[in-house]
Each structure stands twice: as C-alpha cells, then as structure tokens.
C-alpha cells in the first residue's frame, strides 16, 4: 500500500454530543466515541435504534455542533469551524440519507436537486455545463436524461435513493457518510444500491462511514465494524473478525438476532438473544452501560466504566469480562 492510500480520511476523538432534554437534563446521544477510517475503506457502524449512530454521523458532518471531542477530516480539525470556514470542507464530505422520500425536496426537479451541490460551491460557470455534469452523474447512478426534468414523487424508492447518491457524489467527495441508506428500501433494491456504492468506492477510492442496523449487509460492505451501544463504541475490529469472534456480550446478542437462511443451522445455533429494552439515554446506567441487560454482569460492571482495550490484534472491546 502506498503512503497516500494509507492516509486517514476521518479521525474522531472522544466525540460527544448531548442534547438538552428540558429540566436541565441531557440526552447522551453520543458519548466519547473515537475511531478513524483509512482512505478507500469502509467503517460499518451498527447498533440498535436509538443508540446514537445517526447522531454520531450528523455530528461528524457538522449538522449538529459537537458538545466535546474532536473531528479531523484529512488531518484538519473541523470540530469547531464556523459555517463559512466549514464550506470548503463540505465538498470533501457528503451524506446519503435514510429516507429517500424525505431527503429529496418535493418542489424541485431531479436536475435541481442534483445540481444543488454544484451551485452551493459555484463549480459550474454556465447552466449548460451544469446540466451536462448532472446528466453525466445521473447516467452513472443508472438514471437517464429524461429523468432530470421530473419531480421526486414520480420515482420509486430505489430511484429516489439513486438521486440521493448522485447528489452526494457529484462533488467527488473523499468521505461519504451513509446513514442507513438501504433500510427504507426493499431487499432486491438494497442489493442494487449497495453494489452501486461498492462500485463507486472501487472506481473513485471513496471512503465510507456506513451506518446500518442490518448486520449481514454491514458485513458485506465494511472493512471494519464498530458496534455502538447507548452512545458508546463497545467493540471495534475487522468485519470478518467480529462475525467469527464477537467478544462483547452485546455484539454476541446482536449477531444471534440475525436470521439464518438455513433452518437446520438455525436450530443448532444456541441463542444469546438480547433481553430487555435500551435504557434511557437521558439517564444512562452507571458503570458499563450494558450491565442492565448483560447475562455476565458483575458488581464491578455496575460501578466501573470499561475502557475500549485491544483484546486481540486490531480487535478492541470495552468489557470487563473480556479485558480482565
């Protein structure tokens, strides 16, 4: 690997985002998350609904102001830039949204939607040039020239998501944050979209932060996987490793909830299913946040917060039972 491709595109250190919940209380959406992504790689971020994945993504892309912690994009810190200072960095970092219906403005044509990034960054000198770029981009996501004049509501979910992808990629960003880009699509379309994203990655050396709750899809697209629980990263390692050797009890629980397409194998599998609900992020449990649902919880877990430690080569886990 060359030095350039070895470069870190995104580094997040101790990222924390708290939302005021009224009465002086805080929602601990993201609490001290750290990770980095190398150029051309994909980091999958998984976890239950409400564990802070999307908040994490939105804080990184600076829709939300981080409460504390630092974000580095290609080595430059962007955690506390003003919107004006942020503008040149926005070109390098784009986002694909979950809901293909809500993420496209119903009053704009596809042409206008896809051209919006070009206009925001004053890239095209003329309308003709802009139109050319848009049509070129649409062709690359599998839409044609006729689609450019239409409105978003005239498309199917898969086509809309393609428009969303075209909008994110037209600026040739370095990093693309995919916030559950396929969870609102049906299964046959999911595969198309994911394969398209992979093709773009190979073609342009894109770096992805891929957020999902579908573990099998994350395994397919990711190089590394981070598991989030209640705003914290509890386990992080290579994608295959996490599926073959999940260490954290939460990861094990998540993996056992993945349906197995082979009924014989499914019957043989021992279940470590997760019980109980996610505790409130307003008053997260003390000590290890997972101790309320953990089958192996001890007295120590209720008091001491486990640190993310390397339990094997490149395999980080935050659990007292594993680390001791």
């Amino acid at each position: 690997m060359s030095a350039a491709s070895d470069q870190e595109v995104l580094r997040v250190e101790n990222l924390t985002k708290h939302f005021p919940a009224g009465h002086g209380k805080m929602v601990h959406a993201v609490d001290g998350v750290s990770f980095s992504i190398q150029r051309g790689k994909t980091l999958g971020l998984v976890g239950e609904s409400g564990c802070g994945k999307s908040s994490c993504a939105r804080t990184i892309i600076r829709i939300y102001e981080p409460t504390s912690g630092r974000i580095f994009l290609e080595g430059e810190e962007i955690s506390h830039l003003t919107p004006k200072q942020m503008l040149p960095h926005r070109r390098k970092m784009q986002m694909i949204f979950q809901d293909p219906y809500a993420s496209l403005n119903a009053r704009m044509t596809v042409q206008d939607i896809v051209a919006e990034p070009l206009r925001a960054h004053h890239i095209c000198a003329s309308r003709g040039e802009e139109r050319e770029m848009v049509i070129d981009m649409l062709a690359r996501v599998g839409l044609n020239q006729d689609h450019a004049g239409r409105y978003a509501h005239e498309f199917s979910g898969g086509q809309r998501q393609r428009v969303g992808i075209a909008r994110a990629l037209i600026l040739h960003p370095e990093l693309v944050i995919c916030d559950e880009p396929i969870s609102a699509l049906d299964v046959s379309i999911q595969a198309q979209v994911v394969n398209m994203l992979r093709a773009f990655q190979e073609e342009q050396g894109l770096t992805y932060l891929f957020i999902a709750h579908d573990l099998s899809m994350v395994r397919y697209v990711s190089d590394d996987v981070g598991v989030m629980y209640l705003g914290q990263l509890v386990e992080k390692c290579e994608a295959d490793e996490i599926y073959s050797h999940p260490l954290h009890p939460y990861t094990q629980g998540l993996l056992s909830s993945v349906p197995i397409p082979d009924p014989v194998a499914a019957r043989q599998k021992e279940s470590v299913g997760l019980e109980g609900d996610l505790p409130s992020p307003i008053a997260p449990p003390a000590g290890c946040r997972f101790h309320t649902r953990c089958p192996y919880a001890t007295e120590r877990c209720k008091q001491e917060v486990p640190e993310l430690k390397e339990a094997g080569p490149g395999h980080f886990v935050a659990c007292h039972a594993v680390n001791s």
Partner: peptide
C-alpha cells in the same frame, strides 16, 4: 428538521438558499 433540509446543510447551501429554495416553496 426534514432530511432534505439537512441534506442542503451538509451540501453547504447558504441559509438564504435553504430558506428560499427549500423551506418557503414547501
């Protein structure tokens, strides 16, 4: 708080663009 407004923010559209092209037309 709709995603298309968030999308415009991540793109880097100015507040004016967001108001005049996204919020008011809708």
């Amino acid at each position: 708080n709709q995603e298309f407004v968030m999308a415009a923010q991540t793109i880097g559209s100015s507040t004016r663009t967001i108001l005049t092209r996204h919020l008011i037309p809708n």
